[in-house]
């Protein structure tokens, strides 16, 4: 059982898909201007990674290696279409905000990377754990980014006006519009990587 929990927990920090493997950056930056879309996106990615890992792992002995990429793409895009339809049906406003980035889960490097590196050669149960772990590792970064960007960018959390309730506007506090903009997301991820690698010296690069 310890093997399972290891597969599950390493992607959360030591081998985090965003800060260490540097996969799936596109969506992580684009959807985190507010907390709610970030959480919805994180859940969608967890579902897609876990299920596609399971399916590919079940099929792994029947897929001819030459056409494996297209088989993986078909499996992933079917799952993404399902997720997209569910989002449109139940949380329409969030799905509008996420716009093309739900479709881009198909080409999200985390999904393809985990399929190639893990699910093609492991047993189904392990693959599901790996998928959930990697999805969670991605989700954690998304939630951290979404939290700080929404709090400092628009002064709210999940739509709740935190800064206004604290009365900060009356003493001259202003929202930082730059935090919502695209470039600041990149800089924030850079800072997260900086903090993580200062704590964990093994992850530092040499050049």
């Amino acid at each position: 059982m310890s093997k399972f929990s290891e597969v599950f927990t390493t992607p959360l920090a030591k081998n985090n898909p965003i800060t260490v493997q540097v996969l799936g950056i596109c969506s992580c930056l684009a959807v985190t201007a507010q907390l709610k879309p970030a959480v919805v996106m994180a859940i969608s990615v967890i579902v897609v990674v876990a299920l596609s890992n399971l399916i590919i792992s079940l099929l792994r002995n029947t897929i001819p290696p030459r056409i494996r990429i297209i088989v993986q793409l078909v499996v992933v895009s079917t799952l993404v279409i399902l997720v997209n339809q569910v989002l449109q049906a139940f949380v329409y406003d969030v799905s509008k905000q996420l716009s093309v980035y739900v479709g881009l889960i198909i080409t999200n490097c985390i999904v393809m990377g985990r399929l190639e590196a893990f699910a093609m050669s492991r047993k189904p149960l392990e693959s599901v754990m790996d998928g959930i772990g990697n999805g969670m590792g991605y989700g954690i970064i998304l939630v951290i980014l979404g939290f700080f960007r929404e709090l400092f960018g628009s002064g709210t959390l999940w739509g709740f006006p935190v800064m206004e309730k604290l009365g900060l506007y009356n003493i001259g506090y202003e929202n930082n519009g730059l935090v919502i903009m695209a470039p600041m997301a990149l800089i924030l991820v850079g800072v997260i990587i900086w903090i993580q690698r200062t704590k964990d010296k093994d992850l530092q690069e040499n050049n």
């Binding site: 800060t19 470039p183 990149l186 800072v191 200062t198 530092q204 050049n207």
Partner: peptide
């Protein structure tokens, strides 16, 4: 490669921050 960067920022970290700065310029 020839500049002094904090060791924890080397590689990916600094690339993110520079991309952010380039993005600011493009804005």
């Amino acid at each position: 490669r020839y500049s002094h960067i904090p060791p924890a920022l080397k590689g990916v970290g600094i690339t993110f921050i520079i991309t952010g700065l380039m993005g600011l310029a493009f804005m």
